[in-house]
Design a binder for these strands. Structure first.
Lengths: 328, 328
DNA sequence: TTGAAAGCGCTAACAC
DNA sequence: GTGTTAGCGCTTTCAA
C-alpha cells in the first residue's frame, strides 16, 4: 500500500489526472457524474492531496513566517495569538520563530522561511539589521512593534504601538531597555516629554537604561531606592517590572505609599497583586491582527502596490492601586 | 530578472544541474575548482534554493506541526518555547496551531498539517477525538500533557506531567476542569488520594468541577467561601487561579490566615503577589523539549520502530506565603 | 467536457 | 568527477 496520488485516483476512476485535479479545485467544467465517481475513489483510497506539490506549482504555501524575540514575553504571546487567529481565519498557517533579539538568529530564520517559500513574513525586528531589502528581497513583509530606520520603512508596512504617554506624575524614575531599540527609545522619549511638559528638568540619575531583563532592572531599582530621589518608578516592560517588584519586595518598600509603580504592559495578574499594579495597556492581540490584515491586503492585490503604511495603535492607562499616591 | 533556479546556475557555471545540486548538498564528489565556480555564480545571482522543491523530492520538510489548546495559557507558552528551541537546534521549524480545545479545529489542523507534509506532529489533544490512527495515519506523532485512551496510547509516544501530589493539607477544596480531561481528572484523583491518605473522607461539597476558565472558578470560589467548610483552595490551573484570586479579593479574604491557596502552575508573578502564591511547578519547557526529542529519535531510525513510550515528568511543590497557615 | 504534454525546482540512479 | 534521464505530485496550457 504505497502513497495514493492524483494519478492513482485518475487510473481507478478511469479519467485523466487533469480531471482529478479539476475535481480537487472544484472546477465547474467537470460533468457531475464524473465528479461523483472521482470523489468516491478518493474516499475509498483515503486520498489526501499533497499541498507541497500544489504549492510548488502554484507558488503559494498559504503559510506566514512569524519572527518575534520570545513568545514567553506575554506581549508577544498575545501578538502571536492575534496573528494565528487572523491567519487561520484566512486559511493560512504560521511558522513561529524566536529570535531572542539576536540578529544572527533573525537572519537565519528569515532565510529559512524564504527558502521554505512562505507567502509572507511578520517580524518584530531585533533592530540590529541594517538592510532588510537585501535580506528579504521582494517577499511580502510586515514589521511589528519596532520602527525600522527610514530606508527600510520606505519599503515595508509597519504596525506600531503608541509608546508615549501624557504627563501624570512628578518625580518619577524610569527603567527601560537599550535606547537603540525603538520601543525602549520611544518610551524614554515619552517619559522625557512628560517630565518637560510638567515643567520639570530631567534628572539623569532617575533614568536607567539597560536591557529588557529582570535582573538588570533589579539592580537599577536598588539604585533608584538608594538615590531617594523619586517617588514612583515606571517599568518599561513586564520583565523589567518583575525585577522592580523583586527589589521592592526585598527592601520591604510599601507600594504606593513609599514608592509608586507603573508598568508598561497590562497583564491579568496585575489585578490580583496587592496593591494592583497600574499599567499602560498595549493592544497586543490587535497588533497581530492588524499585521495579518496588512499582509492579506497586499496579498490580494499584488500590483500596482500602494506605498508602505505605518499604523500606530493606541494605548490606554489602567489605574490600579500602585500609582495612587496615598501620601503627599 | 526572473527567479534564479538550479538550472540557471548550472548554465552560467557551465555545468549540469546535478553538479549544482551536489554543491548544494556538499557532496564530496565534486572537484574543488568546480565547487568554487558554482558558488561564485550562486553568490553573483543571489541564489536561494527552493526548499519546497527539495522537500517534494526528498519527502522531508523539516517542519513539525504543533497543536496546543491556546498559547496564551502560560503552561503552553512555555511548552511551545521548549519545542521551538529544541526543534530549531535540530534544524526544524514549527507550525503553531491553537485548537481552543475544539475537536473540529483540531481535526482541521491535523489534516492541513499532514497535507502540508510536516515531518511530525506534537499534539496536546482536546481529548474529544476517538480515533487518532484514522486521522493521523502513520505520520509521526507525539502527544503531550493529556493521556490518550488505551487504543491510541498503543500507537503513539506520550509525554505527561505527574498530576498527583502527596498529602499536605487537611480541609482543602479543589476547583478543577472537566473530569473527562485527563489533566483535570488526574489532578482530582491526586487530590482524592491525598485526602484519603490523610485518613479523611472526601466532602463532595468541596470538589468543584467545571472548566479551566476563570469565570467559572470565580463562581466556585464564592460557593466554597459560602460553605465555610474549607481552609484552603487548590486551583487546578493558572486560569482557575485568577478566578479564585478575583473572588478572594472581592470578599477581602486574607490569604493565608482566612484561606490558604495553592496553584497548579508556577509563574513568575506568583513570587510578587502579597503573599506569594504557593504552587506546584510543572516542567513545561522540559515537556516540549522531551516531546521533540522523542520525535527526533523516531525520525532518525525509521524502522523497526520501538514500542510507543509514555514518559512522565515530575512536578515540584514551591512553598510561598499563600499556603503557610498562620492560624489553627 | 475531457486529455496529453509540459513543467514548478530539485534529487537520485545510472552511465561515462 | 560529471552528465543524462527520470521523476516527486500537482497544475496549466492547448487541443480535441
Amino acid at each position: 500500500m504505497d502513497k495514493v496520488n492524483i494519478s492513482i485516483i485518475a487510473q481507478r476512476a478511469g479519467v485523466s489526472s487533469t480531471t482529478v485535479s479539476r475535481v480537487l479545485n472544484k472546477s465547474p467544467l467537470v460533468k457531475d457524474s464524473t465528479v461523483q465517481r472521482v470523489r468516491e475513489v478518493m474516499k475509498a483510497l483515503d486520498y489526501q492531496p499533497n499541498e507541497l506539490a500544489r504549492s510548488l506549482r502554484s507558488s503559494s504555501t498559504r503559510t506566514i513566517g512569524v519572527i518575534v524575540s520570545n513568545v514567553l514575553n506575554p506581549f508577544f504571546t498575545s501578538v502571536v495569538r492575534g496573528i494565528e487567529d487572523t491567519a487561520n481565519a484566512a486559511g493560512y498557517n504560521i511558522v513561529l520563530c524566536n529570535s531572542d533579539e539576536k540578529p544572527e538568529k533573525e537572519v537565519e530564520y528569515v532565510s529559512t522561511l524564504i527558502a521554505k517559500q512562505v507567502d509572507g513574513l511578520i517580524i518584530a525586528s531585533s533592530e540590529k539589521i541594517q538592510n532588510y531589502s537585501e535580506l528579504i528581497g521582494n517577499k511580502l513583509a510586515v514589521f511589528i512593534d519596532r520602527k525600522l530606520d527610514e530606508c527600510n520603512t520606505k519599503r515595508y508596512d509597519t504596525v506600531l504601538v503608541q509608546n508615549r504617554v501624557g504627563a501624570y506624575i512628578r518625580r518619577i524614575g524610569i527603567i527601560t531597555g537599550q535606547s537603540n531599540s525603538t520601543t525602549g527609545h520611544e518610551r524614554l522619549l515619552g517619559y522625557e516629554a512628560a517630565i518637560q511638559e510638567a515643567g520639570l528638568a530631567i534628572d539623569p540619575e532617575l533614568v536607567k537604561i539597560g536591557d529588557f531583563l529582570g535582573y538588570t532592572a533589579y539592580g537599577f531599582t536598588m539604585e533608584l531606592l538608594d538615590s531617594k530621589k523619586c517617588d514612583a518608578i515606571f517599568a518599561a516592560n513586564n520583565l523589567i517590572l518583575l525585577g522592580v517588584l523583586r527589589a521592592l519586595n526585598e527592601r520591604k518598600i510599601k507600594v504606593p505609599s513609599e514608592m509608586g509603580l507603573i508598568a508598561f504592559d497590562n497583564l491579568d495578574w496585575m489585578n490580583y497583586c496587592n496593591p494592583g499594579i497600574s499599567a499602560i495597556a498595549q493592544p497586543t492581540y490587535e497588533l497581530g491582527r492588524v499585521a495579518v490584515d496588512l499582509f492579506l491586503e497586499r496579498c490580494g492585490n499584488p500590483l500596482p502596490a500602494s506605498p508602505p503604511r505605518e499604523i500606530v495603535l493606541d494605548i490606554s492607562l489602567i489605574v490600579r492601586g500602585s500609582s495612587v499616591r496615598q501620601t503627599f
